[in-house]
Each structure stands twice: as structure tokens, then as C-alpha cells.
Amino acid sequence: MKFSILVSEGPYTHEAADTAYNFTKAALEKGHEIYRIFFYHDGVNNGTRLTTPPQDDRNIVNRWSELAQAHELDLVLCVAAAQRRGIADADEAKRNGKDADNIAPGFRISGLGQLIEAGIESDRLITFGD
């Protein structure tokens, strides 16, 4: 079955980023396809590579990047939500006159249409948030 995931909560907030990760991992282990994971609102904070948690804590951002690399996942950050929260890739940084970008490996920035498309193209869309 084809799943898409919506994450609307930041990492280290409550538990949505963890549950979304655990669900995604379990779905992949069961042989399902993850069509896309869309990060909206504070969820875009899952995609900054500058995150530096203590060494004995889980690294939520790296965990997404590693899962994306292992399974060729499509991790999409909402552009408007990312701009508001200071998350940029090289193109966005240049376009908005910023001196750096901070998007984590495996993530890309795009529009809300990507969420709508995921909802249409997938058998299931599961929301994790706060």
C-alpha cells in the first residue's frame, strides 16, 4: 500500500516527530511504499541540519536523513512555513538574500501542492502533529 505522512510538529516538542518516524519505519519494514513525507507548520524544523542535540539523545533530523537515504524517501518542507522559520536551501537562501542555507540532507523545499498531490496519489495520508 502507498502511504504519505504529514508532520506538523517540530522535533523535541512532544512526540509527533518520533511517532511519525516509528510509523514510517514500521510501514517500510512491512513492505509498504512511502510516497512522500510532507513537513508543515513547525514540522519544517525537522529539516535543519544545524540541529545539535546532546550526544545521549536521539538526533531526529539525522534519523530522517538516514531513513531517506536508505529508502529513497521524498522529504518535503513547506516553503512558506520554512521561510517563516528560517529554513533555507541554497536557492531559497540566494533568492531571499541570506548568507547561508541550513536544509538537512534528503530534504527539499516545495509548495503546498506537494501535500495535495500526496493525498491524491497515496492510498492513505496519515497526520502526526500537536
Binding site: M1, F3, S8, N22, F23, K25, A26, A27, E29, K30, H32, D123, R124, L125, I126, T127, F128, G129, D130
Partner: peptide, 20 residues
Amino acid sequence: IDYHGFVDLAAKYDKTQSWL
């Protein structure tokens, strides 16, 4: 159930509503 059971439920029911 565990997370695999969660996936099974999401597959079994045609829609999932998250109460946040």
C-alpha cells in the same frame, strides 16, 4: 499493539483521522 500493528490498522481502515 506495536507500530507494525498501527500500520496494519491504517491499511485496514480506508481513512485515518488524527485528533490532535
